[in-house]
Design a protein around this nucleic acid. Structure first.
Lengths: 411, 411
DNA sequence: GGTATAATGTTTTTAAAATTAACTAAATTC
DNA sequence: GAATTTAGTTAATTTTAAAAACATTATACC
């Protein structure tokens, strides 16, 4: 059963200690400000135990006392907070169009960031050498705190293998072969952690976003790719081989056209931004949307998702219709996910979240009409407000997550 | 965070003890025969710790020494086994057509069983009084071991509320209102645990079926209902409100006809046995199948799923076609589930499993052609061999599961 | 303004768990 | 039949959180 060679599955006293310290640290991180007595109440641990744990974490410079809060009577509780500057991470995010390297603290706040675009890079090898250069640039910026860097978090669309630090396939030109990133990120021998972009973004929502205290969460990411991050009992679930959450390639029209993945009528074919833009271009071409036709002519460039949102904002009926339809398709995805996972909350993220004001209603309507157990459950559905930055913050959150889980030493 | 009033989320020494005893007991249960030294190796606990735990479990009569096994040299390891007769459970299974009450041991082997059919029961109240009668019958059979009964496990199709021991809705006539079973199962004040039938069957596979050592499992149940049991990291996942796994009501044809649930083109509309039988009856009526036409005429009764299987076995092309198509639809479900959950194994159960020989190939073909990450992962797909008995064995497994998890005292 | 009260947080002692190290037991090998 | 190998146990130790007593710091009320 669960025989993972070298991993203890039985518990001993050290495990108890590690788990309780993780628990306290994560509670302080998620609550922001919290007193010892409240920690004791929430965890069920005794006050002396909390005092001891807090003392240790303060000795490691991870926790700080920051003022007091009020009570009706009696001694005021001392508020504790995580010292975000205790440790740092290197965050690397690959997208379809380029990559970014950043230095973040435990916030994770971005302290320094460098972006590169594939468009100016001739081939994969040149791109990776560029990555190496940018990585070293960031390390140089961090020079005074090098010892405090916990590790490197990498996220990318498409399949990865975190153990071998390899991007197995990438949607744009990097994809020619599987890419082992280790040779390019060797300085200081920092540990590398990799995750799918949806899972990484999900970790960001869990650690400092909209879902900090959610036990069971689906982070539904809809952009050029459609995928999901899954949180079960407060822990991200990636599947047996870290390939879970591919909701974009579940069939929602088994009689529909074949997707590039081999499946028929994949959800992604209906609700990703590319599908919307294909319809937008057609609408512009056929003159169904005066706004989009004008954009296409004036800018002599392709229409973007932001153009569609802009069109909707100025009242263009065709753009409004496009987003309404997109919302309905997203709603279908939400219904399927909720019927399968019964989460407490669904956070909708990715580029589509920029169109929240136009998507919210159709999504909610589809859920109200089609969810199997709508009489009994009503999952909270919200949109991520984090925009583009979620990619790099997600990458940083991978390291943060490993650190707080206690699998990264240091405390 | 996860503040469940009254539940400790921090760990202490007692938690370690309970967890390690649970772990040892579950390992012996799942392995069948195992020595102390192997337990030590698998768990990572030391030999003295295992000795202590085993001594305690033997003192509770839960473990027994049963012979030795061989080694190349040295002392032979003493094999340990769970004493299935140490404790008993009452298992109650509701189906569309009736209910069963049984006494089982920890095997769980069925020691005594009584079945009732709704068809001879006038209304819900009479049915529930019948349930009470049967329950008392079973208790009378168990009279000498009453003290050793751990609890009552109940499974049913449709939504339940385990906390209030209530069937919220039932597909057949019991459904008129939500049913609180407590008044009818009060004798001896046994604890009652309820679960959806797919989840219960899944627990059976985990504890003594085909998936005893699987970390991440999907039990895909296809019969009149279509649902799934989900195992994540060795533990059944039921969702925030125990409504997860409703794969039968995920849309696989969002432009398709409306399902009774409100959603469009639900998977259940394509691959459940009723859908197959509708097509079978039509085929018999239109004379597309000589075999089925003959069955319908000869027996003057409706065609059953077993008839279709029988037809396929004697080479009837129409029946073969029906099952082939059913296999393809099941395959679509499997692909969607695997893309979402990335399990180690998928067990296909329910009435459809009787047609394994005809379904296996089309299911596997769809998976080979449509699974997103077919290059990287190859989940094991198998059919449950447990037939009808899985319902009552599943109900018993609910209690077994709670007991071994340590949430049911006694050890 | 001083005393009772209430709430937070700490120190000291204790109990309970698994570990370590040393040991016993039972088999094979030569 | 002695050396070796493997399984299992005993006794002492370490480490953890709990329990009980205590210290600190605020409000309330006369």
């Amino acid at each position: 059963m669960h025989k993972i060679s070298g991993v203890r599955i039985g518990d001993n006293l050290t495990d108890v200690k590690v788990k309780n310290r993780s628990l306290v640290l994560s509670l302080v991180k998620k609550r922001g400000l919290i007193s010892r007595i409240e920690l004791a109440r929430i965890t069920g641990l005794t006050q002396p135990t909390i005092t001891n744990i807090v003392n240790e974490l303060m000795a490691s410079n991870l926790l700080q006392e920051v003022g007091t809060s009020d009570t009706k009577a009696g001694r005021k509780p001392i508020l504790l907070a995580v010292n975000d500057r205790a440790f740092y991470t290197i965050a690397i995010s690959f997208t379809r169009h380029g990559f970014s390297v950043a230095l973040t603290d435990l916030g994770p706040n971005i302290l320094y960031r460098r972006d590169s675009s594939y468009s100016v890079l001739e081939n994969t090898e040149i791109a990776l050498l560029e990555l190496q250069k940018e990585f070293i640039h960031v390390l140089e910026f961090a020079t005074s705190s090098l010892r405090l860097i916990l590790g490197i978090g990498v996220c990318a669309p498409g399949p990865l293998d975190s153990d071998s630090c390899t991007i197995l396939a990438h949607p744009t030109f990097l994809a020619n072969k599987s890419l082992d990133l280790r040779p390019y990120l060797q300085e200081y021998d920092l540990p590398i952690f990799m995750m799918n972009q949806a899972d990484a973004a999900c970790l960001h929502e869990i650690w400092r976003g909209e879902a900090k205290e959610v036990r069971n969460l689906i982070y539904f990411m809809v952009g050029e790719e459609v995928g999901a991050g899954i949180v079960i009992d407060g822990i991200i679930y990636q599947g047996q081989d870290r390939k879970a959450g591919e909701v974009g390639h579940t069939s929602v029209n088994l009689f529909g056209p074949r997707c590039v993945c081999g499946n028929h009528g994949c959800l992604e074919m209906y609700c990703n931004t590319r599908a919307v833009l294909d319809r937008a271009r057609e609408g512009a071409w056929l003159g169904k949307s005066a706004y989009l036709k004008d954009v296409a002519r004036r800018r002599e460039t392709v229409i973007t998702f932001l153009d569609v949102i802009e069109g909707a904002k100025v009242g263009d009926q065709f753009c409004l219709g496009l987003l309404h339809q997109m919302g309905q398709y997203i709603g279908v995805g939400v219904v399927n996910l909720v019927n399968l996972y019964d989460p407490e909350q669904v956070v909708i993220g990715g580029e589509c979240a920029l169109a929240q004001e136009f998507l919210q209603e159709p999504v909610q309507n589809v859920v109200s009409e089609s969810l199997l157990y709508r009489e009994y459950i009503r999952p909270q559905i919200s949109f991520s407000p984090w925009g583009d930055e979620v990619a790099i913050l997600g990458a940083a959150s991978i390291v943060l997550d490993r650190f707080i889980a206690g699998q990264l030493g240091r405390f």
